[in-house]
């Protein structure tokens, strides 16, 4: 089966997040809520029930005062390629084809009208990137007015997750098409809301396979790593940190085992 129509250019969108730069301010989270019509409730402290397309986690090295270090780790959907390209864990288990791997972009979609809420995908995702709508969303008073028409509001009973702001890609593609350059979408023309919102410049987004894009260089950084890399999910989100303890937290290492980026130094 031909996965990419011959007239479509293949892209592979992904993200590189510099954990040593992230300040944990959560601007990315709020910009995402606003961009993607993510609903809220008056009780949001039960994080397993809270809807977040990107979560910023706080990590500490556990050393005692004053040798303590803190890092913040923003985590969107990893848009995994899967062990076999095009088969991320969540896509394989979906009985309704409600989540799919988009070959021309490498983005893992979520189609709310197809989803019937079995939550197999949530069980299959090792990153907790997916959340379930246990309640109907409510925008009190006239808050419905701030909803964006570019992203549909979800209902009770469906799973939702980060889409790498796919609607922004659609808008950029439309614009390019109208301007007579259907396949040329500049790096600046398509950026996710969180990337744009990050006030410290920790997030970089682009085509991982395009040598002209910043992410292409960054993903090859010596200190780049991915979360739970050894599960072979092949995430499209990379992280950079020069701190060994952060690398250690990104995967399950045995005692004495050294993360790849530091293996050389210790040998």
């Amino acid at each position: 089966m031909q996965k990419i129509p011959s007239h479509t250019k293949a892209r592979h969108f992904g993200m590189v997040i510099d954990v040593d730069k992230c300040t944990g301010c959560a601007s990315c989270m709020v910009a995402c809520y606003s961009e993607n019509n993510v609903s809220f409730r008056d009780e949001e402290s039960a994080k397993m029930l809270s809807l977040n397309w990107i979560m910023v986690y706080k990590l500490t090295n556990g050393e005692s005062f004053p040798d303590t270090e803190v890092c913040y780790l923003p985590q969107p959907c990893m848009h995994c390629d899967g062990k076999e390209f095009g088969k991320p864990p969540c896509v394989s288990v979906c009985p309704a084809v409600a989540t799919d791997f988009d070959w021309p972009t490498g983005i893992v979609s979520q189609i709310y009208t197809r989803c019937f809420g079995c939550r197999y995908c949530m069980a299959a995702c090792p990153y907790h990137a997916r959340q379930f709508n246990w309640w109907d969303p409510v925008w009190p008073a006239d808050m419905e007015k701030y909803l964006s028409p570019n992203v549909s509001a979800r209902t009770r009973g469906v799973v939702e997750k980060c889409s790498f702001c796919y609607h922004r890609f659609q808008l950029a593609r439309q614009k390019a098409y109208h301007e007579g350059r259907p396949e040329e979408i500049g790096e600046d023309e398509y950026q996710t809301a969180c990337t744009q919102a990050c006030p410290s410049g920790a997030i970089t987004f682009g085509d991982l396979d395009n040598p002209e894009h910043e992410v292409y260089k960054l993903k090859q950084d010596r200190y780049a790593f991915r979360l739970l890399e050894r599960l072979n999910t092949n995430p499209s989100v990379y992280y950079i940190s020069k701190r060994k303890w952060v690398h250690r937290m990104a995967d399950n290492y045995l005692e004495g085992e050294v993360p790849a980026a530091f293996a050389e130094n210790e040998a």
Binding site: S27, V30, E144, Y146, S148, P149, Q196, A197, P199
Partner: peptide, 29 residues
Amino acid sequence: VKIEGKEDHPVNRGSLCPLGYSSIQYLYG
């Protein structure tokens, strides 16, 4: 529907804090 930082403003040069991004929730609500 959305607030973002203004790139060419001399104070924040495109940056914006979470409160700024949330300010639509005070316009309505």
